[in-house]
Design a binder for these strands. Structure first.
Length: 560
RNA sequence: UGGGGUGUAGUUCAGUUGGUAGAACGCCUGGUUCUGGCCCAGGAAGUCGGGGGUUCAAGUCCUCCCGCCCCAGCCA
């Protein structure tokens, strides 16, 4: 975190500290509304909020902005805490709820009314909208704008007491109906909502609006820097106005651009649709950019944090290439993942000169990137399983793998030379035969001869059966929102974003794998044991493939 | 004739007080290798949104223009 690239928020905070504007203290907050699951866009915000606090020796609060009980639920509060913690951040004792400040907010609202800066309006929602004016024209004052302080006080107390039905009255700030900033045209501070709150129960039937509440939440907690996304830039004058009217601490709001990622969507509304319409299996579907989905997919918190660091912080709208996320993932997984051999689409390979019924244990390195990871043994026998892609009867140029007459290495085992392939009546290759060189045990030839390819394999009689789930982008297009009139983003859903392989086999060491464990299947990709794995046959989610030069060569050969 | 933002390689970002541009990812070459992974070396790629101006010198300063994003919830 020390040699991070510079960005404007870091510079602004430094400048504030230098100028003594915040007592040298840095207090930030991550303020989710508990009405949905966190996604990688939130991860960016979390990294910035907690990251800035940590960098300047300050603190970052986790505060639930629970001011709208009609859409918030306890289960989201729980899930959000789990996700933030999993990402590696610690709010210590600073867990807060906006709803805990309702009493203080109410007092301050009364103070504003007494100062003649807020009034109760009887206009309906539609009327208020009509009075607000347009983007280019000023609004009109409500006929109730000039009520006396006494009348406003009385009406506001009766609103709170539950005397009026939902939507019948609101408390509004008295600012400027002609302001070019619509947020300043007498914004609503409180609305009547006779809905029990998930934490406050029936204590309130009026609830504060975001603009009124958020600055106070920040202020009450002593937040120094309130970091949020760009769409709140227009709200900053109002944020400042409220705080300026009151005898309270005044934090500084700074806005940055939210994260967009290619090949996926970040909007809560659209994510919800994907879940509700069954395009995915739930909020933690491994194809979703939700934190829970990424976790189940096998992403590491470290990879996500590195990613958030590398994308930078700026104010322009942008779309980050999903490839950068995958790069950060592979970089981390490469260092930490134990290697293991598994064959996704098996093809029988019979070693004709290997004694029938015999088997032996061969030593394999657990992680070439980490000498401390040690070794294990894998069983070898006459009947092996190799990847179908690793054999071609009539190979094209640059194909280095097994083919008739060709010698390759079986990793950690022997050099084998293919003799022939066997086809069934329909002409499909059902097995391959070959011979091995006993002197190459372990994988090296005493005479120093080389092979151009090394294949992964499993011993057929020893292998365990596993299920693998191969994921591709949920959206085929980089921009899921690129669609024609009359269509919506769901037309861009990739119909083959999930491929389930039931015939995969793995080396027996995988028997001990537990849900959440991550492995590199050598030459194939990184996999993570699914949380829903049944005991007998573990399910492996493909987190990400290994970079694959051969597939690029193939693409080139096909296209030209 | 509303307001607020924002425009630098394909992408995401850096570019100190003005000295004709850098990184990462992606892409391409080559090397290395018991993973076609990792690693190493190299390369292609930018009329710095456009015009005008100030200056010996402008991505940086001034000015005009253009593009894109956000705002008319009793959502956050």
């Amino acid at each position: 975190m020390q040699n991070s690239t510079p960005h404007f928020i870091r510079e602004a905070i430094k400048e504030d500290i230098r100028a003594g504007r915040c007592d040298g203290r840095v207090v930030t907050r991550f303020p989710p509304e508990p009405n949905g699951y966190l996604h990688i866009g939130h991860a960016k915000a979390i990294c910035i909020d907690f990251g800035m606090a940590a960098e300047f020796g300050g603190e970052c609060h986790l505060r639930f902005d629970d001011t709208n009980p009609s859409r918030e639920e306890q289960r989201y509060i729980d899930a959000i805490q789990e996700d933030v913690r999993w990402l590696g951040f610690d709010w210590g004792e600073h867990l807060y709820f906006a709803s805990d400040y309702f009493g203080r907010m109410h007092e301050l609202a009364v103070m504003l009314i007494k100062a003649g800066k807020a009034y109760v309006d009887d206009l309906s929602a539609d009327e208020i909208r009509a009075h607000r004016g347009t983007l280019t024209g000023p609004g009109r004052r409500s006929p109730h704008r000039d009520r006396t302080v006494e009348e406003n006080l009385d009406l506001f107390e009766r609103m709170r007491a539950g005397e009026f039905p939902d939507g019948s009255r609101v408390l509004r700030a008295k600012i400027d109906m002609a302001s070019p900033n619509l947020n300043m045209r007498d914004p609503v501070m409180y609305r009547i909502l006779k809905v029990p709150h998930h934490r406050q129960k029936d204590a309130w039937c009026i609830y504060p609006m975001y603009d009124w509440a958020h600055g106070l939440e920040d202020s009450l907690e002593g937040v120094t820097h309130s970091l949020c996304s760009l769409e709140f830039e227009d709200h900053r004058p109002l944020y400042d106005w409220f705080l300026d009217q009151l005898p309270v601490h005044h934090p500084r709001q700074i806005e940055f651009a939210r994260l967009n990622l290619s090949h996926t969507i970040m909007s809560k509304r659209k994510l919800l649709r994907l879940v509700q319409e069954g395009h995915v299996e739930g909020w933690d579907d491994p194809r979703l950019p939700t934190i829970s989905g990424l976790r189940r997919r096998g992403y590491t918190p470290e990879a996500i944090r590195t990613f958030c660091e590398r994308i930078g912080v700026a104010k322009r709208d942008s779309v980050v290439d999903h490839a950068l996320l995958e790069h950060c993932l592979r970089e981390d997984l490469n260092k930490r993942s134990p290697r293991v051999m598994a064959v996704l689409r098996p093809l029988r390979l019979v070693i004709d000169n290997y004694p029938d019924g015999q088997s032996e244990e061969l030593e394999a390195v657990n992680n070439p990137e980490d000498p401390g990871a040690g070794t294990r043994t894998v069983p070898f026998s006459r009947e092996l399983l190799i990847e179908r892609d690793d054999f071609m009867e009539d190979p094209p140029k640059k194909y280095f793998r097994l083919a008739p007459g060709r010698e390759v290495r079986l990793r950690y085992a022997y050099f084998v030379t293919c003799t022939h392939a066997v086809r069934d009546s329909s002409g499909e290759i059902v097995e391959v035969h070959g011979t091995y060189d006993p002197s190459t045990r372990g994988g090296d030839a005493p005479d120093g001869r080389k092979v151009k390819a090394t294949l992964h394999w499993v011993s057929a009689p020893h292998a365990i059966q596993i299920e693998t789930r191969l994921y591709e982008h949920l959206f085929a297009k980089a921009d899921p929102d690129a669609f024609d009139d009359g269509e919506d983003f769901t037309v861009n859903i990739n119909p083959v974003s999930l491929e389930v392989l039931n015939e995969a086999r793995a080396e027996p060491s995988l028997k001990k794998a537990m849900p959440g464990d991550r492995f590199q299947f050598e030459r194939v990709g990184y996999f993570c044991v699914d949380t829903a794995s049944a005991g007998g046959r573990p399910v492996f989610n493909r987190t990400v493939t290994l970079r694959d030069e051969w597939s690029r060569i193939q693409k080139r050969q096909q296209s030209g």
